[in-house]
């Protein structure tokens, strides 16, 4: 069957394939970390943990933050770079994190999925509470 017979142009077909490709949806903790990175000018372990605690009110352990960051970096959703060694850190450097294009797309996809789930749920209508 040709594309023309299906009424699809090549670009439309490509778009359709991309739309139906399985996408990476993030866990709530991963999403919080990525959003915290986006909100921060200088995103490193402690600042990310503080941002989540201050904004979302969720206590987080630094080990958990670094474990999640390692996972996100493996998936190319974030990149990192080492800063300068600092005396108050015993001569250790900070690891600064940034979102990649893929990371930003994953955040948007997750948001879209959550909003879609949110819509048309009668129990959730009529304001918060």
């Amino acid at each position: 069957m040709t594309l023309a017979r299906q009424g699809l142009t090549r670009n439309r077909l490509l778009f359709t394939i991309c739309e139906y490709m399985p996408r990476k949806l993030l866990t709530d903790f991963e999403l919080m970390i990525l959003l915290a990175i986006l909100r921060l000018d200088d995103a490193y372990g402690v600042s990310i943990a503080r941002e989540i605690e201050a904004t979302a009110g969720r206590k987080v352990m630094l080990g958990a933050v670094y474990a999640a960051l390692g996972r996100l970096e493996e998936q190319a959703l974030v990149t990192s770079s080492l800063g300068e060694p600092m005396p108050q850190r015993g001569g250790r450097a900070r690891q600064h994190f940034r979102l990649t294009g893929t990371g930003l797309r994953a955040v948007k996809d997750t948001r879209r999925a959550l909003v879609a789930l949110w819509n048309n749920v009668p129990q959730l209508e009529g304001g918060v509470g």
Partner: peptide, 9 residues
Amino acid sequence: EPLTGDLLE
């Protein structure tokens, strides 16, 4: 190193 540094800081 970054995690240890964060904890010490």
